[in-house]
């Protein structure tokens, strides 16, 4: 294996709940596409399944200036706007800014590091890579996973990755040495209607099928840049339903979603693009 080749990324199991534990490292789980960055004989950024992310996001070519030579990094590609990642901008390839949140170093200066403990790989990562341009080094905290999780939840980020500091990098394997705590729930719903608020902001009315009937679960702000098809105006319009994935914090007693926001949606009558086929998000 040479730098420049694809390394299948290591995967995490879902933890039953957040925990604090000595000897573990806790970092933000960024909401984007997994990216394996290889700088060797050639420069490549691979998706989780080894597709070429740069063909979908040509902007990433510029990231080479911000990366050192002779290195392989594990990262998450995010679309960044207004101080936080926005998955829907990534999905529509409409982001003004992309960022590679790098969190692991698999190879550096002639040596593979996958058989070395995470603590050592992080050291190498911080030694060789710094935050600039399209590259940001994802930081974390040791031991105190519960507090980190509650901070991540307060900022409405996706979740926390918990990793044993003595764990090796197991390409393509889903290992209990990596665990994730999810702060947001993700679920697919039907958009059944559109509503325009008095300030001109559009909302999508959401429903779900339970026991054969369709239940309303509330509304979600339509993604930035989305506009309703021609001919639609007024307060509430019912539309041919289409599917939307919503990230939310929790449900109210009535089953409505709190802190809901659109993550991605399937093309329907209202436009919107399919996700790039090569870019498979980690579930």
């Amino acid at each position: 294996m040479e730098p420049g080749d694809f390394v299948s990324p290591m995967l995490a199991v879902t933890a039953p709940g957040p925990f604090s534990r000595p000897g573990w490292w806790f970092e933000t789980k960024w909401d984007g596409y997994r990216a394996i960055i290889s700088v060797g004989q050639r420069y490549a950024i691979y998706s989780r399944r080894g597709h070429d992310l740069m063909s979908w996001y040509p902007e990433l070519r510029r990231a080479q200036e911000d990366l050192p030579d002779d290195i392989v990094l594990d990262a998450e590609l995010v679309a960044w706007s207004a101080g936080r990642p926005h998955f829907s901008d990534l999905q529509r390839r409409s982001a003004r800014q992309y960022l590679l949140m790098v969190f692991d170093c698999l190879y550096s200066q002639g040596r593979w590091l996958m058989h070395e403990p995470l603590a050592r790989r992080l050291e190498e990562l911080h030694r060789r890579v710094s935050t600039r341009g399209l590259v940001a080094v994802s930081e974390g905290v040791p031991d105190n996973g519960a507090a980190f999780f509650s901070a991540v939840r307060d900022m409405e980020l996706e979740g926390v990755m918990a990793k044993r500091l003595d764990s090796l990098y197991l390409p393509g394997r889903r290992s209990p040495a990596w665990q994730k705590f999810l702060a947001l729930k993700m679920e697919w719903f039907w958009v059944t209607g559109l509503m325009e608020a008095s300030d001109g902001q559009w909302y999508w009315l959401l429903g779900e099928h339970t026991e054969g009937t369709r239940q309303a679960v509330g509304k979600v702000r339509a993604p930035g840049g989305w506009s309703p098809p021609a001919g639609i105006d007024g307060n509430i319009r019912w539309v041919r339903p289409f599917l939307v994935e919503v990230a939310y914090r929790e449900r109210t007693r009535e089953g409505h979603l709190r802190h809901a926001r659109v993550r991605q949606w399937k093309s329907g009558d209202l436009g919107g693009e399919n996700p790039p086929p090569g870019a498979d998000h980690i579930p």
């Binding site: 933000t28 960044w80 706007s81 101080g83 936080r84 800014q97 960022l99 949140m101 935050t131 600039r132 341009g133 590259v135 940001a136 994802s138 930081e139 905290v141 105190n144 507090a147 980190f148 509650s150 901070a151 991540v152 307060d154 900022m155």
Partner: peptide
């Protein structure tokens, strides 16, 4: 930008912990 925003966000997380 947005590198600084990321640093600020991570700093906030750390401060909260």
């Amino acid at each position: 930008q947005p590198g600084q925003e990321v640093l600020d966000l991570m700093e906030k997380l750390r401060a909260s912990v």
